[in-house]
Design a binder for these strands. Structure first.
Lengths: 107, 107
DNA sequence: CATAAGAGATACCGAAAGGTATCATTACAA
DNA sequence: TTGTAATGATACCTTTCGGTATCTCTTATG
């Protein structure tokens, strides 16, 4: 079970959430991403580092560009944490969720 | 559609997430909550204010105590935002997420 | 009423976060 | 090879955040 703090911290900033939405369309370089915001490449790079620490993307050099790719598995700790609040969602849902959890434990 | 920023910000702090877990058991007063942490009542109160701004709890005076109660609907903007990433999730996780959204939309 | 417990409000502090500027380094392309 | 585009790294600035201290106000309870 991954610690949830890095991913929650990564999601707390609106610029970072927007970066994730852009990366959902396709992998992008730092300069490409910076073109979508009114801030410097250095600032974008910092955000990417935080997102990487949160496990939400991977960065790989391609030639002289650094390409960031969304890592959807990174959202898993968020769902795991939210599951604690099962009790507030109704019985049908609870049954479904415990079934899902059982499946995942079988992996 | 509620803006997601307040709730994401509220979830970014580990103390606040722990407060939510405690409130999931039962409503609690500020002093009661403060007893669970190594910090002053004023600090706890600040966290509660942030959580309230995020729509995750309600605060109501009961006599001379202020009782905080979990507001599970507050998680909905999180799910709404996460929905954008549907395309990347495997079927089991997708089933879990859409089920939660369906339940909450039925309210 | 007197007193203590719970909370509101304000000011303040230190650390972390968001962002810019600058310079060095690397890789492609003409 | 020479220039330029992209990244790396560092230092610095400003704002926000987490937290404490202090004082006041209100409300139970003796």
């Amino acid at each position: 079970m991954t610690a949830p703090q890095p991913v929650f911290r990564a999601l707390a900033d609106p610029t970072r959430r927007e970066i994730l939405r852009l990366l959902a369309m396709r992998p992008m370089s730092v300069v490409e991403l910076a073109g979508e915001f009114e801030m410097t490449r250095a600032a974008i790079k910092k955000h990417l580092t935080v997102l990487q620490a949160g496990g939400l993307l991977t960065m790989a050099p391609v030639g002289r560009t650094l390409v960031s790719t969304l890592k959807p598995d990174g959202f898993q700790p968020v769902f795991n944490w939210l599951e604690y609040f099962d009790q507030f969602w109704d019985d049908r849902l609870h049954a479904l969720k415990t079934a899902i959890e059982r499946e995942q434990n079988d992996d």
